[in-house]
Amino acid sequence: MSLEDLLAPTTEPRRYVVTGGPSAGKEAVLAELHARGVPASEDEPAREIYRRHRDRLGRHLQVADRRAYSRDVLAAFVAEYCDHKAGLRFYNRGIPDGYGWDAFFGLGPYPDLEEATRIYRYDAVFVLDPLDDFDSEDDLVFAQEREIRRVHELIVQGYYDAGYRPIFVPADEPGRRVDFILAQLPVPST
């Protein structure tokens, strides 16, 4: 099946996740997909939810606040999943990302996340390998590499735990990464 066939709005929905740790170059890959007319997430739902929680609390999220935040993010991911009815779409992170993020902040999996992971399945998961040079992507130089690395590995682990076999996208410039991703399509469902 060609990319044009996959893009046709009459075909069955196919959902692909683009994920990875911080500084993996995710935004650049999604921007490249948009530039090529490939449907992809416009935004990351977690941003607005994070702002909302922080505004409500008047401070940074603490351990006791994180479950509620995680549930709101999950609900947004599920809504984004269900909104897609036909053709192909790339997602800026997927439901199982929740495993990795929660684990990073010391939380275990919870029933709603496990149920959503079981029900809402993606056709494939593309994990962007971390870019070698953090400076080239943004100014997160102060977030030490080990912190970034740990988030990345926990996210990957979350997808394996959820029964996916991620496809690793080597560090490269965005155009070549998108070429690599599109060359894998259609990936059979896991």
Partner: peptide, 28 residues
């Protein structure tokens, strides 16, 4: 301790939840 490096440009964060989380964590 967090490693400090000579800054060559103003700190501009991407609009990314992890960047915000990382800043909060580095602040603490």
């Amino acid at each position: 301790a967090p490693e400090l490096r000579a800054a060559t440009r103003p700190l501009v964060l991407p609009a990314d939840v992890f960047a915000w989380e990382a800043v909060e964590h580095q602040h603490a």
